Simulated assay, not measured.
Amino acid sequence: MDVPGPRNKTICREGSGDDGDKISSLPNNLIEHILTFLPLREAAKTSVLSTAWRRTWVNRPSVVFDDQFWKPYPVEVAANKQLKKLRLYACAFTSSQISFEEFRMLTSLDLRWIKFPNAARVSFIIRCPLLLTFTLIACDTANGTYLDILSEAPSLSYFHCVGNFSSVCVKYAPHLKDVIVHQTASCPRDVWCSMLLIILAPNLRNLIITTKAMATQYIDLNLISAIQRVCGLNKHKASKLLKVEINQLQGVRTEMCCIQWLLAASPELHKMEIKFSPNSLPADQVQTLRDLNGFQRASSKAQIII
């Protein structure tokens, strides 16, 4: 009596070798080349084909969120761009006007090692009413173009910016609590931009600023009057600020004006940690310390740690 089961299994085994699975046996470079011809949604679906194809689509050299990407969704869903979390690492933008206005449901945006086009200036605009966290790290251009970063995110609570930027403006940030600003190139507006963040974020708790030296003393002096006017407005208070960390301090007048305002406008401040730039002279550091000790402090608990 013939038993069909084992014979069928043998046939299956004979037909399941590498010769029978052409898709899985393709080399990785050919798979990546094939994926470049597919729309984003279709490329993502190839993850189910086999282990060799799983998540290979994320290595595509370009990603386009065009009409074809949103087409399978209903019109009302596509219009609102339901994407909530977006992380882009090691990719490039082709336009000098970058905007996330259409992603109305976005709550987290994390961009790292992004290359922007070589242009006179790049504008980076964030208009996401539900955005909670915004991270922009090591994003620059080949020719050193400065970035203008404008964020209109009323729900923003965490902002981390590291790179070669010329201006940072956060419009109306009532929920912003943690800010890390790290300037990687010499820009005369960096301290001023950091102070703008404080003024526009009344609930800021923690602030970390790392700056580079001012380009020239002449540009530095041009900023003094503007900063002093803002510092003199009593309505601008950093009332919730608890901790401040300032790195690479040069002791120039714009930085000192910013520190003076922070101490005078922060009644809840507990600690201000300051680290001098290794390029600063010992004599300049001594004079800076004297100036710091003479600044008025709104908080009796505020400690300056060098």
Rank of each mutant, 00 (worst) to 15 (best):
P4L: 13
G5V: 10
P6R: 13
T10Q: 07
C12F: 04
G20R: 09
G20P: 02
K22E: 10
L26Y: 03
P27R: 06
N29G: 01
I31T: 06
H33L: 04
L35Y: 07
T36E: 15
T36R: 14
F37N: 09
L38V: 04
L38T: 12
E42D: 13
K45I: 13
K45P: 02
K45N: 09
T51S: 10
T56F: 00
P61F: 08
D66E: 08
Q68D: 12
F69K: 07
A79F: 02
K81M: 13
C91T: 13
A92S: 15
F93A: 05
I98E: 01
I98D: 06
S99Y: 03
F100Y: 03
F100V: 09
E102H: 11
E102P: 03
M105A: 05
L106Y: 14
T107S: 13
S108L: 09
L109Q: 06
D110I: 12
L111C: 14
R112A: 10
W113Y: 15
I114L: 15
K115D: 06
F116W: 08
F116E: 03
A120M: 14
R121F: 10
V122W: 11
V122Q: 02
S123Y: 07
C128V: 01
P129Q: 05
L130I: 02
T135R: 05
T135W: 08
L136G: 07
L136M: 07
A138R: 05
A138P: 00
C139T: 11
C139K: 12
D140G: 08
T141N: 02
Y146V: 00
Y146I: 10
I149G: 07
L150K: 06
S151K: 06
S151W: 01
F159M: 11
V162N: 07
V162Y: 06
N164R: 00
N164V: 01
N164Y: 04
S167D: 10
V168P: 11
V170P: 01
Y172I: 05
H175Q: 13
Q183W: 04
C187K: 01
C187H: 02
P188T: 02
V191I: 11
W192F: 15
L200D: 14
L200P: 01
P202F: 12
P202D: 09
L204I: 15
N206D: 12
T210Q: 13
Q217P: 00
Y218I: 08
I219G: 14
D220N: 15
L221H: 04
N222H: 10
L223Q: 12
S225I: 04
I227Q: 14
R229G: 06
K235C: 09
K235Q: 15
K237T: 12
K237D: 05
K240F: 06
L241C: 00
V244A: 05
N247V: 07
N247D: 05
Q248L: 10
Q250W: 15
E255D: 03
C257H: 04
C258D: 01
I259H: 05
L262Q: 03
L263D: 04
L263C: 11
E268Q: 08
L269M: 15
M272H: 00
F276M: 14
S277L: 01
S277Q: 12
P282M: 02
A283W: 00
D284E: 15
V286Q: 09
L292F: 07
G294V: 04
Q296W: 03
S299F: 03
S300G: 07
K301Y: 12
K301Q: 15
I304Q: 00
